[in-house]
């Protein structure tokens, strides 16, 4: 049992893991911000486009959401990191992970926002337009605020999933928590660093998972 909690190994592993926490949080927050912004932008475009010449845009956005729902995030990350350089696109591990996680979350967020927007009663659009609000103002002041309420629980859950998926970045040598733990583990041939990393992840994400569960029951959409 001692080998799992070897104090010397834990002490040696801690500085690296501690710096890894910063990288994990930095990658998580930037990808979540980018993904949510991308999803909101795409859903807004999809809601506001009108008229025949622009209709294919809506289809393209829906196709993007489909493709990135079907694509495993790790496959996307590996393609971005290992294949893109052949096209002259050299991304750092961090950038590749940021782009991959942002694109995947963007697709889910678009779908969630779109579902929220379409679930707002058509009468709300009609009422707003009948008072002379432009489509943009009707969307911004009337439809979106109601849609956002419905999106909070699922969006929170997707954001948490994105935070957890930052562990994938260890595969492309980003020195986040898992990567730091794995490198010390390789040097010391001890499982203790991995357990320490696991403890860090639980400390980071267990409260968030509980909050996500609470939001689901609180808002109770189905």
């Amino acid at each position: 049992m001692r080998i799992f909690f070897d104090p010397e190994v834990l002490a040696a592993a801690w500085p690296g893991i501690r710096s890894g926490i910063g990288v994990t949080l930095g990658l998580a927050l930037t990808s979540i911000a980018a993904g949510v912004a991308l999803g909101l932008l795409l859903a807004t475009v999809r809601a506001l486009i009108r008229g025949a010449p622009l209709r294919p845009v809506g289809g393209l956005i829906a196709a993007y959401a489909d493709v990135f729902r079907a694509m495993p995030p790790l496959v996307l990350l590996v393609v971005l990191y290992f294949a893109a350089p052949f096209a002259g696109i050299e991304l750092s591990g961090f950038m590749a992970a940021f782009v991959a996680l942002g694109l995947v979350l963007g697709a889910s967020a678009e779908e969630i926002f779109w579902a929220g927007i379409t679930s707002v009663n058509r009468g709300q659009w009609e009422a707003a337009l009948s008072t002379g609000l432009s489509r943009g103002e009707a969307f911004r002041r009337v439809v979106l605020p109601q849609a956002v309420r419905l999106t909070i629980p699922p969006l929170t859950n997707r954001a948490i999933a994105t935070g957890k998926n930052t562990a994938l970045a260890s595969v492309v040598a980003v020195p986040e928590v898992l990567n730091q733990a794995a490198s010390v583990q390789a040097q010391t041939a001890s499982p203790a660093p991995l357990l320490l990393a696991a403890g860090v992840y639980v400390a980071l994400f267990l409260p968030l998972v509980r909050i996500g569960r609470w939001l689901e029951t609180r808002f109770h959409i189905r």
Binding site: N121, G123, Q124, E126, A127, A128, L129, S130, T131, G132, L133, S134, V142, P145, Q146, R149
Partner: peptide, 20 residues
């Protein structure tokens, strides 16, 4: 059109008030 709609008020069967 928006300007005309402003001067032509509409009231709906289901009220359609903004719930938020």
């Amino acid at each position: 059109l928006a300007s005309v709609r402003r001067r032509m008020g509409m009231v709906f069967q289901a009220f359609n008030l903004y719930p938020h």
